[in-house]
Computed example of a mutant assay.
Amino acid sequence: MSVEIERNPTRAVTIGNVTIGAGHPIAVQSMCATHTQDVEATTQQTNALFDAGADVVRIAVDSRKDAEALAEIRKRTAANLSVDLQENYRLAEHVAPHVDKIRYNPGHLYHHEREKPWQEKVRYIVGIAAENDCAIRIGVNCGSVDPDKLSLFPPDDSIAPMLSSALEHCELLDGLGFTRYCVSMKDSDPSKVIEVNRRFAEQRPDVPLHLGVTEAGMPPDGVIKTRIAFEQLIGRGIGDTIRVSLTVPNDRKHEEIKAGRGILADIAAGRVRSVVDFGLDTLNIISCPSCSRVENEAFVVLAQDVKELTRYAKDHAITIAVMGCRVNGPGETDDADLGLWCGPKYVNLKKGEQELGAYPYDEILGRLKEELDALIEAKTPGVAT
């Protein structure tokens, strides 16, 4: 089902029965949006993604109960499984026997056992992965970059800290004799995704890259933003595995696989276009793909409502972020002009890094419009909304 596209000669990394890099077909991934402890729902979605053509399916694990559920899910699916570790790196030992790949975020290693050096935590994860025949993904994300790296670069340079963090972790894994890993460096801005991956590939052409635009948003805009990045990178031979991250309801998660394979097919056939051909609005709405960490399923509906509400502002250079959980939401809304991150009962509204308060779901759209109108007026005095 994979598409043959000529790429850079990265080394081979095996994930279950799929191999990425070294000229192997580009693998397509997705992530479950169900609550992991709901074994029936998560198994059903895992198998639906697998049946749609997913080479790897990622599942989030945040607790021992999640890990116990994962063990049961493993028995019920033939999919290659990747686990998404967040703050608690110690969960690696509980999930590794049941998965084919472990993904950790360098920026999240600081949240648990803060007194320990991050290098010690990575050595632990590597040891567990080696013992359990698991690959590793070093997943660097624009909204949760290693704080020590952020302090080394100017505030307006978001690419250098991501690149530095990824390269530093690669060096550590290489020094430990563990080379069965790939790297991802994701941002909600396709141009930054292109630049950071291009620069990484120049310095570490041997390391397979997982490509994606984080918080790409809803279709069709989310697919278009992702296509822009993929066409530029894969067209240069960069990229060994991909994910199209879309804000869609649970019963439509398979659309990520369909979109990814469609983009690969178009690139292979030479059907590529310039950025101006896509006709995106100047207003930029970014929203995360729903996952098991979403505490209120109304998040997806809210993202759709935000897009509809803000159509009148489509010609204004404003970014609005809609995030589904408290794990990534606070940090990943910092760079937006207006940001919303969703809790179980309230939606937190931000203006840049400034917290504006938490509002019930049925009140947040009115408050968002007030702030958007004020922002438009401040940017373009005299323009009525």
Results as ranks from 00 to 15, higher is better:
Thr34Gln: 12
Ala48Gly: 03
Gly53Thr: 09
Ala33Gly: 15
Phe50Gln: 14
Val57Gly: 12
Cys32Phe: 04
Asp55Met: 03
Val61Lys: 13
Gln37Cys: 05
Thr43Pro: 05
Val57Tyr: 14
Asn47Val: 06
Arg58Pro: 09
Thr46Pro: 03
Val57Asn: 13
Thr46Asn: 07
Cys32Trp: 08
Cys32Leu: 02
Asp55His: 15
Asp62Phe: 13
Asp62Ser: 14
Phe50Met: 11
Ala52Cys: 07
Gln37Met: 07
Asp55Pro: 03
Ala48Ser: 12
Ala54Ile: 08
Ala54Asn: 11
Ala41Tyr: 05
Thr34Glu: 09
Leu49Arg: 03
Val61Asn: 12
Asp51Val: 10
Phe50Ser: 10
His35Glu: 03
Thr36Gln: 03
Gln37Ser: 04
Thr43Cys: 09
Gln37Asp: 00
Met31Val: 05
Gln44Phe: 03
Gly53Ser: 07
Val56Tyr: 13
Asp55Lys: 08
Ile59Leu: 11
Asp38Cys: 00
Gln44Ser: 07
Asn47Cys: 01
Ala33Ile: 02
Arg58His: 14
Gln29Lys: 07
Gln44Thr: 12
Val28Tyr: 11
Ala48Tyr: 01
Ile59Thr: 10
Thr43Glu: 04
Ser30Cys: 01
Asn47Arg: 13
Met31Cys: 01
Asn47Tyr: 02
Ile59His: 09
Asp55Tyr: 09
Gln45Asn: 08
Phe50Arg: 15
Leu49Ser: 08
Val61Tyr: 15
Cys32Lys: 05
Ala60Tyr: 14
Thr34Ala: 06
Val39Glu: 11
Cys32Met: 02
Val56Met: 14
Ala48Asp: 10
Ala54Glu: 13
Gln37His: 00
Asp55Ile: 01
Thr46Ser: 04
Val57Ile: 15
Leu49Thr: 05
Gln45Trp: 04
Ser30Val: 06
Gly53Tyr: 11
Gln45Ala: 00
Thr36Asp: 08
Ala52Leu: 06
Asp38Ala: 00
Gly53Ile: 04
Val56Cys: 11
Phe50Val: 05
Gln37Tyr: 01
Thr34Arg: 03
Ile59Ser: 09
Asp62Gly: 15
Ala33Trp: 05
Leu49Ala: 08
Ile59Pro: 03
His35Gln: 13
Val57Ala: 09
Thr34Phe: 10
Thr42Glu: 04
Val61Thr: 15
Gln37Trp: 03
Val39Tyr: 10
Asp55Leu: 02
Val28Gly: 05
Ser30Arg: 04
Cys32His: 05
Ala52Thr: 06
His35Asp: 01
Asp55Ala: 07
Cys32Thr: 15
Cys32Ile: 02
Val28Gln: 08
Phe50Asp: 06
Asp51Phe: 05
Asp62Thr: 15
Gln29Pro: 01
Gln44Glu: 13
Gln44Trp: 10
Thr46His: 07
Arg58Asn: 10
Ser30Phe: 01
Ala52Pro: 09
Asn47Ser: 09
Ala54Tyr: 14
Asp55Gly: 14
Val56Thr: 13
Asp51Ala: 15
Asp51Tyr: 06
Val39Thr: 12
Phe50Asn: 11
Glu40Ile: 00
Ala33Gln: 09
Gln44Lys: 14
Thr43Ser: 11
Thr43Val: 11
Val39Leu: 02
Val39Asp: 01
Asn47Ile: 04
Thr36Pro: 01
Met31Leu: 07
Leu49Cys: 12
Val56Pro: 04
Gly53Glu: 12
Ala52Glu: 07
Glu40Trp: 00
Cys32Glu: 06
Ala52Tyr: 12
Gln45Asp: 03
Asp38Asn: 14
Gln29Phe: 06
Asp38Ser: 02
Glu40Cys: 01
